[in-house]
Design a protein around this nucleic acid. Sequence first.
DNA 1: CTGAAAGCGCTAACAT
DNA 2: ATGTTAGCGCTTTCAG
Lengths: 343, 343
Amino acid sequence: MRVSLKDVAAHAGVSIKTVSNVVNDYQHVTPAMRERVQRSIDALGYRPNLTARHLRKGRTGIIALALPELGNPYFAELAAAVIDAAAAHDYIVLLDHTGGRREQEILVSQGFRARVIDGLILSPIELESDDLRDRAENVPLVLLGERHYDLPYDHIAIDNVAAARAAVRHLVGLGRREVAFIGARRGGSEPAQLRVRGWREELTSAGLPADDGLVAATDGWGHADGAAAMIRMLDTGRRPDAVFAYNDPMAIGAMRVLHERGLRVPEDIAVVGFDDVVEGRFGAVTLTSVSPDKEAIGRLAVESVLARLSGQAPEPRRVRADYRLVERESTLGRRTADDGTGG
Amino acid sequence: MRVSLKDVAAHAGVSIKTVSNVVNDYQHVTPAMRERVQRSIDALGYRPNLTARHLRKGRTGIIALALPELGNPYFAELAAAVIDAAAAHDYIVLLDHTGGRREQEILVSQGFRARVIDGLILSPIELESDDLRDRAENVPLVLLGERHYDLPYDHIAIDNVAAARAAVRHLVGLGRREVAFIGARRGGSEPAQLRVRGWREELTSAGLPADDGLVAATDGWGHADGAAAMIRMLDTGRRPDAVFAYNDPMAIGAMRVLHERGLRVPEDIAVVGFDDVVEGRFGAVTLTSVSPDKEAIGRLAVESVLARLSGQAPEPRRVRADYRLVERESTLGRRTADDGTGG
DNA sequence: CTGAAAGCGCTAACAT
DNA sequence: ATGTTAGCGCTTTCAG
């Protein structure tokens, strides 16, 4: 059986408190005492029972992170960032995925899957304001991704409209005149809507078409969805000279289709993605993409949880994370100096 | 403050035990009583404190999963499989990453990062048998990936040697005569060594060269490492007609280099990867790859932990998971019927 | 079928 | 500087 404080105390011939003091590095312990207790700890192989400590202190040291899916490398990389940021504060991360389904997101937000946590970081897709309104759970919740919830929760997000506009501006600046958008999610997803809005605003202000025929809706946000959307658009007879995709996997799926149809990227159709996943840097045509600062997002999310946990930050915060547009071959074409594999 | 069993008991005018019985769906509770208690539970919004339950029962309902890195989509997909398998047994998953560094792997195996878990699933890279020999931790440990540890822990793995042989056999069957191996990890990694061994065995038995000049060692296992290794090999003047890479990201990195150098895949050089990540199905040239059954691996790992937790399975098990070779354009060339995006 | 009470292992007052 | 003790919220004998 596991050895407890009591066992160590008995072995060392001291009280439980003294052992606890040593374990917790209390100040007022004589070196001799510390030495003696430590010897017993080592001899018995004592390891503190964190569950008991948690019960006592009301904190578990665990943050839950709920993402739509791990198969999308953006979320995988984000998870890594959160794990590292949490580790910096001696927190560990419980990971869950929702599939981007509203039901799952509601369950997670109410803590049905994990009730042993100090805080929750949730990246919602379909979740509505109303779903959160009567949230009974009292652990801090931080939302990832831009939303217009009128609710008292911290948000961490980049400015999707501005980022989408920057992507489209880049395309327009290269002389593209018919820019399609792939990935306006069916059933509505706020980040997708915001990117569509940015796409539309930028095109409109440039006096270029932004009609619905240039927008392809999808059910998911994977490679296959991007490929299917590209096929559908081409099959309508519409032939844009540029594509802005909701994310990189969809952009890459679309590029695959263009390649199969003998259309050249970027000569015939330029492509811009979103998220800057590693994969985009190593294709036959490297992918221009909006690159959110994932480390910052992960760090800010963890810090938000911890701040709220310690009673700081009375006002719900909307934090804007940085992003930048990384220009690669899918818009610029093959360069002489090969920097295709660079960041 | 949080409401406890005691509060509910007071509110319902019954004892704590009765409330506990209702919460835990005990058999012998009169419907009237159950009704009454349930009403109080709802009125107060009672939620059981899992930490307390865990302390009492000695189980936390948490499994830790420690992977080398999440950026590699294989591990991300594997994590998803483990989360789902765990959920099927009402377990949640604590995720950690080791970077494949021995020190981190040792720390994880000894539970330094997470001591609130019922079991640990670890996918080691550099960890040695000796590192595990004096493991004081008493939670069940299941190892992912083929190893020759002579230690009493469950292993879940595919047969790397056989899988590598199948990949090479496929290349040889297509008439390739000089097959390089990319990704023999510097500093030694057992799975990498086993794949090298399978590569060598198959080539040798086919009477083909398998000298060290055909093997490129790397420090990591990402796209960039595969690209760098490919560059080094080509720069030695060696011009293989096929490449077998340790994993898909490295294969894709290598293909990028071949593309930059104007070498055609598969006409000039055929490429086979390992892990069958989604990304490999959507490049300009889709990637032939060894496809491990990730769902099975995740499920078997979780089941191993739970079996050991319930005192079953006295003997440490070595479980072989399935794999298959998925043949795509990087070895077969562009097909007429387009099945490039299929599994 | 329900109530009382002990105790899981730990921390934090409080006492010495 | 060290010891005593209550109690975190729950489950679980053991009574009734």
